[in-house]
Amino acid sequence: METEAVPIIASVALRGPLIGDIGNWHSRTPVHDASRHGNTSQLRELIDSGVCVNLVTVDSITPLHEACLHGHIQCVKLLLAAGAQVDARNIDGSTPLCDASAAGSLECVKFLLDNGAKVNPPLFTASPLHEACMSGKSECVKLLIEVGANLEAHDCHFGTPLHVACAREHLDCAKALLHAGANVNAAKLHETALHHAAKVKNTELVKMLVEFGGNVYARDNRGKKPTDYTWPNSPTAKCFEYYEKTPRSLYQLCRLNLRKTLGQRAVEKILKLNIPTRLKQYLTYN
């Protein structure tokens, strides 16, 4: 029985998944399995035997997706060297770079970028930056920002990367986005990052967003301000109450307006200004 199973497995690997395998892990081929588990020796044998590295499951997952999602850099290198499509999309629109970012694998992210992976996908789909923020992988967030990730990429379900970072309470990710010039008042159905911070009742997140210009009076599509999502007399509610009653200082308003004028990549532009170092530090929140 075992000897009869070998050619059957090889046959499945060569021809791809069966339509009858929809929604079933049987639609994953041996090359998917080797990539998922980081089995480089098995993967090399399959590639050498002529197996196609761009086989897809019924949900359009490729072996490269599997390797990236689990951070197996050696498998990623083998697959790309064998001709794997670096920007292949699964049924959800995610690329291998999205999966590597979600896994927080800096090695995989860097290697994919070096091999031509696109950091910015089409509009209204989750981007690698969204995925990194969702998983709280702040180092990946910083790297993606460095290589030109769109800070205002808008996913129809999640909004901007800042919305995602705040909804998941990943302060380091939110801070990296804000420092880079992300729009703190970007809205999804009129809902801002401050609305998310209020819903998760994270006072530190609220303070940081307000410091970067978050509008405490913004109303969502239900007509509610961020404070309307807090418990009465809770630390978060008191925080909002303070900000609603206390006007911003003139120097804070100047900083916010200058950064707004400079837009995305504001820090890079500020550092080039012919102004005193202390002013640069203030404008860049250092």
Results as ranks from 00 to 15, higher is better:
Glu66Thr: 03
Cys68Met: 00
Leu64Thr: 01
Thr40Asn: 11
Ile61Thr: 08
Arg36Tyr: 13
Ser60Lys: 12
Leu43Gln: 07
Asp33Gln: 13
Thr57His: 03
Ile73Phe: 11
Thr62Val: 06
Leu78Gln: 12
Leu46Pro: 01
Val76Asn: 09
Leu69Gln: 10
Ala67Ser: 14
Val31Asp: 00
Gly50Met: 02
Val51Ile: 12
Thr57Glu: 09
Asn54Gly: 05
Glu66Asp: 13
Ser35Trp: 06
Leu80Ala: 07
Gln42Lys: 14
Val76Pro: 00
Thr40Tyr: 08
Gln42Pro: 00
Val31Ala: 04
Val56Gln: 15
Leu80Pro: 02
Cys52Thr: 08
Asn39Cys: 12
Glu66Lys: 11
Ile47Leu: 09
His32Gly: 07
Asn39Trp: 10
Val56Thr: 15
His37Trp: 13
Ile61Ala: 03
Asn54His: 11
Ile73Gln: 10
Pro63Asn: 09
Arg36Leu: 11
Ala81Met: 13
Val51Ser: 11
Asn39Ser: 13
Glu45Trp: 11
Cys75Phe: 04
His65Val: 00
Ala67Met: 05
Pro63Asp: 03
Lys77Met: 13
Asn39Phe: 08
Val51His: 06
Thr62Leu: 02
His65Ser: 03
Cys52Gly: 12
Leu43Ile: 06
Val58Lys: 14
Lys77Phe: 02
His37Ser: 11
Thr62Ala: 02
Gly50Pro: 09
Cys68Leu: 01
Arg44Cys: 07
His37Arg: 14
Leu55Arg: 15
Gly38Val: 08
Gln74Trp: 04
Ala34Gln: 06
Gln42Leu: 14
Leu64Glu: 08
His70Pro: 00
Leu64Ser: 06
Val58Ser: 12
His32Val: 06
His72Arg: 05
